[in-house]
Nucleic acid binder design. Sequence first.
RNA 1: CGGGGCGUGGCGCAGUAUGGCUAGCGCGCCUGCUUUGGGUGCAGGAGGUCCCCGGUUCGAGUCCGGGCGCCCCGACCA
Length: 578
Amino acid sequence: MRASRYFVPTLREVPAEAELTSHRLLLRAGFIRKESAGVYVYLPLGWRVIRKIEQIVREETDRIGGIELFMPALVPQELLDETGRSGLDILFKLRDRHQRPFTLGFTHEEIITDIVRNFVSSYRQMPLLLYQIQTKFRDEPRPRGGVIRAREFIMYDAYSFDTDHEALERVYQALRRAYFRMFERMGLPTIIVDAEAGAIGGGSNEEYMIVADGGEDKVLQCDSCGYGANAERCELPDPALTPPVVDAIPPMEQVATPNARTVEEVTAFLNTTADRLVKTLLMRVDGAPVAALVRGDRELNPYKLMHALDGESVEMMDAETIEQITKAPVGFAGPVGLPADLPILADHELRGLQDFITGANAEDAHLVHVCWGRDFTEPRWADLRVAQAGDRCARCADGILREVRGIEVGHIFQLGTKYSEAMGAQFTDGEGNLHPIIMGCYGLGVSRCLAAIVEVHHDKDGIRFPISVAPFEVVLILVNSEDEAQRAVAERLYEQFSQAGFEVFYDDRDERSGVKFKDADLIGIPIQVVVGRGVQEGQVEVRLRADKTPEQVPIEEAMARVGELRQSLYHALRPSEG
RNA sequence: CGGGGCGUGGCGCAGUAUGGCUAGCGCGCCUGCUUUGGGUGCAGGAGGUCCCCGGUUCGAGUCCGGGCGCCCCGACCA
């Protein structure tokens, strides 16, 4: 491709809207352009990268027997009604001329299940692994970081259909390995972590994370066994604390704490520390009220509460109900004197704590010297609090968790029968009995990968693309476009490289060399061939974007040398397993 | 949804407090000359509903009211 006839709108100055490195570079290098909040144009260079990512994902899925199809972006709302997802607040909704409601596809479990329930009815038709690469629409509350979190984005989504859980486990593991291969080929170093399923639901699921400061997710990782989990999921071990002896503890007493509601206010007023305090959070799990207790300096993980009760949804209780149940304004709830039928769960860390302070269920009052077992029924113990850096690992004896930021680039789920049961997708087994199909789903953010790649591979001058996903493999820079000798050599090399099947971007523009060098570095094409004054001695310069150490090469050997470099760059990105 | 910030040629910004003539600057763009190994220099030029609507005023980019859009932090998140 000749730069003089291509479309690369690079910018010298960074648009004020961009904060994140990858966002700034993608805008400056002319890869993307914002159309609206979270809505982007992929300009020619950006689109080439997207297509390379797609191709890698295709190859790796096809390799394990995946079959590509393409589903509509317009999803009839009644399909989502079947699974109860039509009310999600992130849906873009619209109506056709007959007022029939539609949703723009935010993920495609319902569509694929609809297809499968109509065409798959026998165990002989499975296993089946279908996938697509398509635009997804989600009306995110807060789009962020360019294409990191967009409202319209490109996603790969695969769906597996099997007759039993062993087969699901097999295909899940196959995808799990295929994902690692995909990310390695893109030059993305990922870690895999346990995760929450969110609105997808189903059974076990894992996320692929790129460790990067710009990441949105908090990830905890064990320094010893490597166990990793999204902070919203991360298990903590039961510290198995021995309860203190209650005999010597003074009787429970109510003290006035005027206007002291928050942990900070109460501890300041009573001149104590937050770890002497027990927070009582009133929640609803599947709509049913429940009280959750965590130490004053800890944070409740609502998902853990939900899982402890085998629930499917969790929310904070509204203020009105709280006041009804505690007979006090919000901020003074405590476990003592709550209705007998209200379940109370406590974080197992609290087992080692007696003689604590807690809300009195009365306005402007707290209780001190409170003991469970003595002053209220012993609660049910569970892992309820949010994990944080420094906590012990739940999976090994002596590991300590550390915290990193991560960009979620993939998420794989064992769905089980959640969708097949809701939508009546059944098959007949060898004995003629009907069963719900066992499903899995597997998502990968294609456009988010573009941002993640830049987030990982850049320096002060611009992007440094791994060759596998670079918009072009080689940039050919004609230093002085007025110099006939240089131009002749560059034209000849361009011709040869193109003939030989290299993806070459030939900067033949009538610009000063500085402009071309700056642009080449910004755009990040991995191999640079500079045709400059060296042509007088019959030489051109070959160098890598990554280190820019120049190498003088005779013109007639340039292509062979570039070929070697190209091969070694691809070689470095070959997948290590599977 | 809560908090903060912003909206002026393609990009980055000044001007707004204290209303006043043809709305400025840098980059980019066009023309000519110049320069040609890291965003050259000089000269000339084009390009603007000052986010929108309404109001106050002799006069509004600037003041008042309402709305819209965008960014960041948090909540949320597939």
